[in-house]
Simulated assay, not measured.
Amino acid sequence: MEYIAVFIAAIFPGGLVAFDNDVLQSLPSFNALRIYCAGIWHNAVLCALCVFALFLLPVMLSPFYKHGESLTVSDVPSVSPLFGYLSPGDVIVSLDGIQVHKPSEWLELAAILDKQNSETSNSSLYLGGSRRFHHGKGYCVPISLIEEGLKGNMVENQFVCPGDLTAFRTMPCSNAALREVSVCLDAKDIVKLSKCGDGWVTTSDTDSKSDCVCPQGESCLQAMQSPGVSWTEITYKRTSSQNCSRLGLDFTTSNCLGTFVFVGDLIAMSHSVHLTAYQPRWLFNFFGKSFPNILERSLTCTFHVSLALVLLNSLPVYYLDGESILESSLQSFTWLSPRKKKKALQVCLVGGSLLSFLAFFRIFLVGLPLSRRW
């Protein structure tokens, strides 16, 4: 051994060991191969430890955090469309009435709702210009509230409402023989009403919201939106007070619950907010609300970096461990002459280096957006 070096690449520590080449050449091929594979082996072990730690992380943090019971907001960037509506520490209860417990469920449900919106957009009823309302998502609005609502104006074949009011119209249901109504209502009040229509994603095949039937004295209305946008309800719970953060609090009776409607690109919205499946068991947690998310991301990042180093150092490329591993492996082929071994080594290294270069070129350059290319 000639020397040992320790370094830090960005935030990741590393090390290397330099051996006397003459001593290595005198060792049996299998012993030399074990030495050359030591770095790859340690990176592989680190990958396995990260996977094991991620698997046991909910158990290790269980004395301080609940996991999988609710979806907690860890951060809302200023560029997010949910900025100002959600705050770090808020608990997302449901998306369009469907409860979500993990970030993966949040993304999957958003994709399902977006796909449903795209599929129904072709069969939506257009109301002149670019305005339409989607089949399915309606609310049972009392007739008295409809009569008190403001009447909008038709501007360039579009139904426009004053202020922050939203345009609603009766749903075109075959079993709803009611006159068509267009009215401007406050969406904050409408989302608190009972739902109707078949556009709501449910967990049951037999759900009372699967038709346009409303109780007597109510009518099934639906919001009119522009093409390419989704009308999605987000129900959340504030955890800024002791009462709202207690365990076992009933969501249906809590005064901490709030609901707002997101109108826009659902996929972009779902990726714009940082969520975690961990929720502190107490309001004032010593580790903080974002600690599990930071720890989980650190383990995931370490796993990816270690896995990348395993794959990189295993490649038959010049000046990497793969070159020495390949050379030691060829020594075990005793039926090959030294000349053929050297030729096979050169062919493999040239081919491996060329293929690796093309692969990295495709990943890091061709895969970049046009705006980021030189």
Rank of each mutant, 00 (worst) to 15 (best):
C184V: 09
T203A: 04
C161A: 05
D205K: 07
Q158G: 00
C214P: 03
S210R: 13
C220E: 05
D211H: 12
M154C: 03
R169F: 02
K151P: 02
T166R: 09
T202K: 10
S208W: 02
K209M: 04
V181G: 00
V201A: 06
F159W: 13
L185W: 01
F159P: 03
D211N: 15
E156A: 11
C214Q: 05
T206P: 00
S204P: 00
L221E: 04
V191D: 01
T170H: 03
T203S: 08
S204V: 11
T170C: 06
N157E: 12
K192R: 15
Q216P: 01
G197W: 09
G152E: 07
L221A: 05
P172R: 13
K195M: 10
D198V: 12
V183R: 00
C173F: 13
N157C: 06
R179W: 00
C214V: 09
A176E: 11
W200L: 09
P215H: 02
V191T: 09
L185V: 05
R169H: 06
K195T: 15
P172Q: 12
G163M: 04
S210Q: 10
D189F: 03
K192C: 06
S182V: 12
W200Q: 10
T170S: 15
V191L: 09
P172N: 13
C196P: 08
Q216N: 11
K188L: 03
A223L: 09
V155C: 00
V160I: 15
I190H: 01
L221I: 12
R179S: 12
Q158I: 13
S182N: 10
L221F: 05
Q216R: 10
M154N: 05
C212K: 01
T202D: 03
L185T: 05
R179K: 10
P215A: 09
S210K: 14
K151M: 08
G197P: 09
Q222Y: 00
V155P: 00
C196S: 12
S219Q: 14
T166N: 07
K188I: 04
V181K: 06
G197Q: 11
V160R: 08
N157A: 10
G197I: 14
C196W: 05
D186G: 01
D186T: 05
C161G: 04
V201S: 05
T170Q: 06
V155K: 04
T206A: 06
P162V: 09
T170N: 09
L193T: 11
E156W: 01
V201W: 01
T203Q: 08
Q216T: 14
S182G: 02
W200N: 11
T206C: 01
A223K: 07
P215T: 10
Q222T: 15
L150Y: 01
D207A: 12
M171I: 14
N153W: 02
E156V: 12
G199E: 05
L178V: 15
A187G: 00
T170I: 11
N153K: 14
D189Q: 11
A187S: 11
E156D: 15
G199V: 08
S204W: 00
M154H: 02
E180N: 08
Q222R: 05
V213R: 12
L221K: 07
K209P: 00
W200K: 06
S208L: 04
G217P: 07
N153P: 00
C161K: 03
C161H: 04
V181A: 03
